[in-house]
């Protein structure tokens, strides 16, 4: 098991990678900053699982990341404290200082 690079409480930004054929990382969280709230077990990343590489695919730690709804939607009309959680593998995340 690889040691997760990010810890619970860390601020992370979701990378805005090209997703030509398939992705599980929603476009509304790409480029957004959220907070790691949970670790998920290491697993074959969807980019390999989707091409039948369960045995040889790359494994990465997964994270649950919590976003403020007001950070995701510029015209969000709900409560300011509303949040949304999504999951992503480690290679989608970059650390945010501060």
């Amino acid at each position: 098991m690889a040691t997760p690079k990010f810890q619970v409480g860390d601020k992370v930004r979701i990378k805005d990678r090209t997703t030509l054929f398939h992705t599980r990382t929603q476009k509304y969280i790409r480029k957004r900053v959220g907070t790691v709230v949970e670790h998920r077990p290491e697993w074959v990343i969807p980019e390999d699982e989707a091409w039948d590489r369960m045995e040889t695919g790359r494994k990465e730690p997964f994270y649950v990341i919590r976003f403020k709804q007001t950070d995701l939607w510029p015209d969000y009309t709900g409560f300011a404290q509303d949040t949304l959680e999504s999951e992503a593998s480690e290679s989608w995340l970059e650390s945010v200082k501060g």
């Binding site: 054929f21 398939h22 599980r24 969807p46 699982e49 989707a50 039948d52 369960m54």
Partner: peptide, 13 residues
């Protein structure tokens, strides 16, 4: 023969 992630990708395809 396949897995759910392959199915999702094939649906996109």
């Amino acid at each position: 023969a396949w897995n759910s992630e392959m199915r999702r990708r094939l649906e996109n395809d």
